[in-house]
Write a protein that binds this DNA or RNA. Structure first.
Lengths: 104, 104
DNA sequence: TTAAAATAGTACCATTTGGTTTCATTACGG
DNA sequence: CCGTAATGAAACCAAATGGTACTATTTTAA
């Protein structure tokens, strides 16, 4: 499935933490790895997985790489989860539909 | 994190397919494995991971094991994802809050 | 122009993962 | 009771995963 890279990216707790951090502000690889007790190379690998999953975009800026959270990468995951909406809140799904229909 | 077993369970495409099937109707291990081109033992392992993740409950019934989708297991995942709601639909989050407050 | 900073990339390692095969156990049914 | 159906469990295997260390490349800045 096309959603596999995104689910794969979210499967690791470190990557989820990184994503959370990047959602607060864009960061270089060095800045991200400063927050973890592991080598920069390991963090870089995680960022690559997140990038492959479409959850993070990278902008080369001089010798730095600015990593940004990309909300669009969440779409495959949300789409898959949406099927289960019926199980926890039918009314919420209804409202979702209404919102989407009214979205111009 | 407490949500790790659930994220781990969702990381595999076969397990997501199983979950989808079980959401349609409860099935025994044999019934589930009939739908896949792999051994019953392999499917059983996947079901164990899903069970560990709280996404599936198992009821022993004679010599059979009835596997059921448990929507409550999705809660940790949804909670984590909810933080990112701000990025794709602020209004939906607002409505969610309203619904939860009005829930008696 | 050159030393240091930031990242890229590769080789390597231990553990986990997804799968198989095989054997044991438990429950039905005639 | 006994054969068979459904599952449990363990040993084993190849590949993927998450990590390290080390080296190379590209920029910056004094």
């Amino acid at each position: 499935m096309t959603s596999q890279p995104a689910f794969r990216a979210l499967a690791d707790p470190t990557r989820r933490d990184i994503l959370y951090m990047l959602s607060q502000r864009a960061m270089t690889i060095g800045e991200v790895s400063d927050q973890f007790d592991m080598t920069r190379a390991a963090v870089k690998k995680h960022l690559t997985v997140l990038s492959d999953g479409g959850l993070v975009t990278v902008e080369a800026r001089g010798r730095e790489r600015i990593n940004r959270f990309d909300p669009r990468g969440m779409a495959p995951v949300l789409n898959w989860l949406e099927f289960f909406d019926q199980y926890w809140d039918d009314r919420l799904s209804d409202l979702k539909d209404i919102i989407e229909r009214n979205d111009t």
